[in-house]
Design a protein around this nucleic acid. Structure first.
Lengths: 340, 340
DNA sequence: TTGTAGGCGTTATCAT
DNA sequence: ATGATAACGCCTACAA
């Protein structure tokens, strides 16, 4: 039992070292020059007593808590773990704690968490909203606390954002399919309000028009980024009696759901239907058939968001900025390319 | 811009309502009876000013921060997201924030985080160590802060723990394979120091002896719960020239790694080799072949750990307790059972 | 170079 | 029932 049950404070250290608390504080923080002898005595006392500064008291005094809030829809969604890890690693490097919040993308939960974090005096908030969190983005931008939005950008609110170019990513995917000779490409999109879903949908359309190819409206579906919604969309697609030779799904989970449905109905992937997903979640490479998909540098996006947030916290950067990462097409079996 | 840039405190509310700060505090916390009229005036002021109590100041005064620390090896390991979600949901229900820490299972990182959290004045710590974190378990038990260990229990330190019966789970898996007629079962275990790995290994051996079946030492491998280590173990297994007709891997990632290796070498799963994993991570059901595995109620374990921790924090429970959950065999294709 | 003292925003103990 | 006021542990002018 090395740690005693009673809290030991800076005052105890001061007494043990025979100096004032100011001196202890100065030594601990290197905030002023002190004599070597006192420094040594204090160091000894700190060691002896195993003193650890009370971060809460310091936070109250300094008016900064050295912690940030991270609001995401759901850590169980395979898209998020890598992002969270990127955030956590970057935050730790700067001595910040990260408070994790799962909102399930529900606006009401998001708001609860925003208020909660604000009350907790976090120095900044990293926010990934659900499909319709526009209201909360406005709430956030009204907060005195710095905020960085991740993956989804806001329509109205002027908040800093880190995104990956969803428009480009979708074009990569669709061009790939067209290059493989596919002409009847179905699209399973994300929630219509979500900015990432909108951009990917635009990419899908624009690629078609650039290549002077028509889009068959009957081949368009809306999902919510879950396995189930992909599965159901594929069933509807098959039952729709339209002919199709490819699917571009706006994320990997829906792509996998779709493939499951297709396979159950006896269709061969990629021979009958080529499939491309989005995100390159870890499972994509192990799935059979391995999934062709668009990779987002999720880990890097997380750590970049922290970097921006910290700059805003320290005041090094005050203007709102948007950092855009580039997507990358990962070709695997499910699209039937030779390289796969 | 609803929130002003200047912090508004209880003092502002008191002034606006024309009462003392003590009265405001009492009303906000319901800690004493106050006249209805004053209560109304205060409520109006709170509303008007959009006052939110400063949790840091409160934490300093109360000596409890209403936050807990969660140390895990790596959120990117698919075993953890569900557990983290269980923790977070339970914590939120009680108004606690959870600070997430990824240690990569490295003792040095774990210790850094323990000190960090202690300094942050967390009210409790949830700890999942890596392979050899026995030293940190002792450090934790010396802390004045309540601690609950998850998934791995400590050899020496007397810490509360939430576990799933790994011994039983392994027996379930091995019995299943034996019941399917397999007699030459290879075992890919986890790190030898880890308590969960030890228990699963014991289960493997004891099932064999109960069934009066010999264990071929040449069929035993040690991994570290990663895809790669499973892959390599399978390669070694094949190259070892021993005949074998089944593999029990101590987690799903290694099972999947092993199947990849086996398949590359032209072996058919489950016909040539039946494979059973452990954990039932989400991917297990979607993997081809779908993985037979032992499920742990990970989400429930996370929330149970929080419940115990909070009881220790509030003092409702002071003795160390161990809660053990039951594992469940999930039969799918990879073991070749009829039900699959 | 070192020490004294005030205040960060709360809660809670006193009086009143 | 309500109001002053003293902590909580720390940092930092301001003095010495």
């Amino acid at each position: 039992m090395k740690y005693g049950k009673t809290t030991i404070t800076i005052k105890d250290v001061a007494r043990a070292a025979g100096v004032s608390i100011a001196t202890v504080s100065r030594i601990l923080n290197g905030s002023a020059v002190v004599s070597g002898e006192l420094a040594a005595r204090v160091a000894a006392a700190v060691d002896e007593l195993e003193y650890r500064p009370n971060a809460v008291a310091r936070a109250l005094k300094e008016r900064k808590s050295r912690s940030i809030g991270l609001i995401i829809p759901d850590i169980e969604n395979p898209f998020f773990p890598a992002l969270v890890r990127g955030v956590e690693d970057a935050a730790r490097q700067h001595g910040y704690a990260v408070i994790l919040c799962n909102s399930d993308g529900k606006p009401a939960e998001e708001e609860r968490y925003i208020q909660f974090l604000f009350s907790k005096q976090v120095d900044g908030i990293l926010f990934i909203g659900g499909a319709d969190s526009e209201g909360n983005l406005e709430l956030l931008s009204a907060l005195p606390t710095p905020v960085v939005t991740l993956d989804r950008r806001s329509a109205a609110a002027k908040l800093s954002a880190v995104v990956c170019d969803n428009y480009q990513g979708a074009m990569l995917a669709v061009k790939h399919l067209i290059g493989l000779g596919r002409r009847q490409i179905a699209f399973i999109g994300g929630p219509v309000q979500s900015s990432s879903a909108i951009d990917r949908r635009r990419g899908f359309f624009d690629t078609h028009s650039q290549q002077r190819l028509p889009v068959n409206e009957r081949l368009l579906f809306v999902g919510n980024y879950t396995f189930d919604s992909g599965y159901k969309a594929a069933i509807a697609l098959i039952d729709g009696q339209q002919s199709f030779d490819a699917i571009f799904a706006a994320n990997d989970m829906m792509a996998i759901g779709a493939i499951e449905a297709l396979t159950e109905r006896g269709l061969k992937i990629p021979d009958d239907v080529a499939v491309v997903g989005y995100d390159d979640i870890r499972m994509a490479g192990w799935y059979k058939p391995a999934l062709t998909t668009v990779r987002q540098p999720v880990y890097d996006m997380g750590s970049a968001a922290v970097d921006i947030l910290l700059k805003q916290i320290t005041g090094a950067e005050t203007s709102v900025c948007e950092q855009k990462f580039g997507p990358e097409l990962i070709v695997r079996k499910s699209s039937g390319a030779k390289e796969g």
